[in-house]
Design a binder for these strands. Sequence first.
DNA 1: CGGAATCCTGCCTGATACTG
DNA 2: CAGTATCAGGCAGGATTCCG
Lengths: 152, 152
Amino acid sequence: MEEGTYKSPGHCEGTDRDYDALQWDTREDCEVRQILDRVADKWSLLVIALLDRHTLRFTELRRKIDGISQRMLTVTLRQLERDGLVERTVYPVVPPRVEYALTPLGATLHDTIQALVTWTEGHQNEIAAARAAYDAREAAEAQARPPEHTRV
Amino acid sequence: MEEGTYKSPGHCEGTDRDYDALQWDTREDCEVRQILDRVADKWSLLVIALLDRHTLRFTELRRKIDGISQRMLTVTLRQLERDGLVERTVYPVVPPRVEYALTPLGATLHDTIQALVTWTEGHQNEIAAARAAYDAREAAEAQARPPEHTRV
DNA sequence: CGGAATCCTGCCTGATACTG
DNA sequence: CAGTATCAGGCAGGATTCCG
């Protein structure tokens, strides 16, 4: 990331204006897709969710977000900071102390993200059931299905 | 992906019960994290957002979601179907016709996701401004910063 | 403690060919 | 059309090391 290098994964030069309903994907300033990719990021979402009002230190975040590598936490925090969603405060003390907190903008996003978390918590049982049903169906079909050209 | 192989990226055996505030990350049935990773997926989010009431065919989704590979669309749709969020209907006609639509459960998720999309659309300018400010600050610091051990 | 730098692996994309 | 299969190439991300 040199400086302001938007690599723009989405093309942006999408000239297909035959969209009738929704197609904010590529067009519509094109930035929406880019921001959405950031916001809809696995790690970003967790960081935003955790920074609900209390500030957290780097290691605290690392510990709370099980499975994240220190590199990805760094990268994620930098991105969120650049996007103006998270504020990074460095205290020039002997053991370095860096605290992260949501900016006012980040706080508004937190509400939305929290809704997503709440939804997930409230529907995990239904999803688990759907998965079980799907897997059972799959297994049954695999059973009944003749081994077309399964070989071996 | 053999059949029901939950590889469980999150450990689940997290025994650190020193969490005081939020730590739904690893514990709390542990499934929340897994589902959240699915829901907070770049492609899943776009698919759900696009399937707002109208059903869409495979190719239609592919065309609307610029940048997605056919493989990832297939994978994403399968996962969403397994999670009971998307329903896949196959019409046994000569040119195969497969339609995807949100299930009732998926529709409830759509509302939440739509809120995220709306937030993004409504704040893209602020984010763009924050990025510009951040980049300018970075550039200024890089300018003023002495080339410590830059070599060459 | 909070990173930055490096290496290295694995997944994703993109292209192509083949089914039903 | 709606996939599945395969291979090449790139890059995102994990693990490790070292520095302020």
